[in-house]
Deep mutational scan, measured.
Amino acid sequence: DVEPGKFYKGVVTRIEKYGAFINLNEQVRGLLRPRDMISLRAENLNVGDEIIVQAIDVRPEKREIDFKYIP
Rank of each mutant, 00 (worst) to 15 (best):
L31M: 08
I56M: 11
E61A: 11
R41C: 13
N44G: 12
I38M: 12
D66R: 14
I70N: 08
E50S: 13
E16N: 12
A20N: 01
R14P: 00
I65N: 04
I38K: 11
Q27R: 14
L45Q: 00
Y69V: 05
E16T: 15
E3T: 13
R41E: 10
D57M: 14
D57C: 14
R33N: 05
V28C: 09
K17V: 12
Y69I: 05
A55C: 15
V58K: 03
P71Y: 08
P60S: 09
T13H: 04
F7V: 06
R35E: 11
I51Q: 00
I70A: 10
I70Y: 12
F21Q: 04
L40R: 04
L40Q: 06
E3F: 12
D1L: 15
P71I: 09
I22M: 01
I52Q: 03
E43L: 13
R35Y: 08
R35I: 09
E26L: 11
F21T: 07
E61I: 08
A55H: 02
I22K: 00
A20Q: 01
D57T: 12
I38E: 11
I70D: 12
V11Q: 05
P34F: 15
A42E: 07
K62W: 07
I65V: 10
I70P: 03
K62M: 11
I56Y: 12
R35P: 07
S39Q: 13
P4S: 09
D57K: 14
K17Y: 11
E16P: 01
V11G: 01
Y8K: 00
R41D: 10
V2I: 15
E43N: 12
L31V: 07
V53K: 00
E50G: 06
E50T: 15
K6M: 09
V53G: 00
D1G: 13
F7N: 05
F67W: 09
A42W: 15
R29P: 04
I51G: 00
Q54Y: 12
R63L: 11
Y8G: 00
G10Q: 00
P71Q: 09
E50Y: 15
A55T: 05
L31S: 04
D1P: 12
L40M: 10
R63G: 15
R14Y: 05
Y8W: 02
R41L: 12
D49L: 08
L45F: 06
V12F: 01
N23K: 13
E16S: 13
G19N: 04
R59A: 03
Y18R: 07
N25M: 06
I70W: 13
E3R: 14
R29I: 14
N44Q: 15
I38Q: 12
E64H: 11
D1H: 14
P34V: 15
M37R: 02
V28M: 07
T13R: 03
G48T: 01
Y18T: 05
F21N: 01
P34H: 13
G19S: 04
L32H: 03
P60M: 09
Q27F: 15
D49H: 05
K68R: 15
I15C: 05
L24R: 00
K9M: 09
I22N: 00
V2F: 09
A55R: 02
I22G: 00
L32W: 05
R59K: 05
N46A: 14
Y18P: 01
I51E: 00
V47P: 05
Y69L: 07
P60C: 11
I65Y: 09
I52T: 10
A42R: 12
D66C: 12
V47E: 05
G30I: 11
G19T: 06
N25V: 06
N23G: 06
L31W: 07
A20E: 01
T13K: 04
G30H: 03
G5M: 08
L40D: 04
V11Y: 12
D66P: 02
A55K: 02
K17H: 12
G19Q: 06
P34S: 14
G19V: 07
V2K: 02
R33K: 09
N44V: 10
P4I: 15
N23M: 14
G19W: 07
V11D: 01
E16A: 12
D49G: 02
F7R: 05
G48H: 02
L32Y: 03
E64R: 11
I56K: 09
F67P: 02
V58L: 04
L45R: 01
E64L: 13
N44P: 08
V2D: 02
D57W: 10
G48Y: 02
P34K: 15
D49V: 04
E26I: 10
F67T: 03
L32E: 03
E50R: 12
N46S: 14
E3K: 14
V28H: 09
K17P: 13
D49I: 05
D36R: 05
I65W: 09
V53M: 06
G10Y: 03
E61W: 10
K68T: 06
A55D: 01
K62D: 08
I51V: 08
I52G: 01
E3N: 06
M37H: 04
G48P: 00
Q54K: 08
N23Q: 13
L45Y: 03
A42K: 15
D1S: 14
D66M: 13
V28T: 11
K62S: 10
V12E: 00
A55F: 05
K68L: 09
S39F: 12
K68A: 15
E16D: 11
K17S: 12
I15H: 02
Q54N: 03
L24W: 02
E43P: 08
D36M: 07
P4E: 09
A42D: 07
I22T: 01
V12K: 00
R59I: 03
G19R: 07
V58C: 09
E16Q: 06
L31E: 04
R35Q: 12
L45W: 03
V47K: 02
E43D: 13
Q27N: 14
K62I: 08
P60F: 09
Y8F: 03
V47C: 06
R59D: 06
F67D: 03
V47I: 13
R35C: 12
G19Y: 08
E61S: 10
V53W: 02
D66N: 09
F7D: 01
I70K: 04
L45T: 01
P60K: 11
R14H: 07
P34R: 15
K68N: 04
V2H: 04
K62A: 11
I38V: 12
V11T: 12
P71E: 11
G5E: 03
S39G: 15
P60E: 08
A55G: 01
R33W: 06
R35L: 09
Y8A: 00
L32R: 02
V47D: 02
E16K: 07
A20I: 15
N23F: 09
I15T: 02
P71R: 12
K62T: 11
N23P: 00
K17N: 09
R63K: 14
Y8T: 01
Q27I: 11
R41T: 11
P60T: 09
D49Y: 07
D36N: 14
L31Q: 04
V12D: 00
V47T: 04
Q54D: 00
E26K: 15
N25Y: 08
D1N: 14
E26P: 14
G19H: 06
V47M: 04
D36V: 07
A42Y: 15
R14E: 04
D1W: 15
L31D: 03
Y18H: 06
L31N: 04
R41H: 10
P4T: 12
V47G: 00
T13M: 07
D1M: 14
L40S: 07
F7Y: 11
G10H: 01
E61Y: 07
V47R: 01
K6L: 08
K9T: 08
V2R: 02
R63Q: 13
A42C: 13
I38L: 12
R14N: 04
S39V: 10
V12H: 00
F21R: 02
E64P: 04
E3I: 15
D57G: 14
I15F: 03
P34E: 12
V53Q: 00
N25F: 08
I38C: 13
T13V: 10
V53P: 00
N44S: 14
G30W: 06
P4Y: 07
D49W: 07
R35G: 12
F21V: 11
L45I: 13
I38N: 13
E26V: 12
F67Y: 02
E16R: 07
K6I: 06
V28N: 05
N46Y: 11
L45S: 00
K68G: 11
E50A: 11
G10E: 01
V12G: 00
R35K: 14
I56P: 01
N44Y: 12
I15A: 01
I51M: 04
R63E: 10
M37D: 04
D66Q: 09
A20Y: 13
D49F: 07
N46F: 12
R63H: 13
G19D: 02
I22Q: 00
Q54V: 10
K68Q: 08
E16H: 09
K17W: 15
I70S: 10
K6R: 12
K62F: 09
R41G: 12
R63P: 06
K68H: 05
P34G: 11
G5Y: 07
L31I: 10
Q27P: 03
N25Q: 05
R33V: 08
R29F: 13
V28I: 14
F21D: 01
I56V: 11
G30E: 04
Y8N: 00
K9G: 01
N44H: 14
D36F: 09
L40E: 04
D66E: 08
G30M: 06
E43V: 11
R59N: 07
I70F: 12
E64S: 06
G48E: 01
M37S: 06
Q54T: 05
I51L: 09
P71D: 11
I38F: 09
Y18N: 06
Y18W: 15
G5T: 03
R14W: 06
E50F: 15
D57S: 15
I56G: 04
E26H: 14
Q27W: 15
E16C: 14
D36I: 08
K62Q: 11
V11W: 12
L32G: 03
L24T: 02
V47S: 01
Q27G: 13
G30N: 02
D36T: 04
R14C: 08
A55W: 04
K9N: 05
P34L: 15
N46V: 12
P4H: 06
K6W: 05
L45N: 00
E43Y: 12
D1V: 14
E43H: 13
I51K: 00
I56H: 06
E26S: 15
Y8E: 00
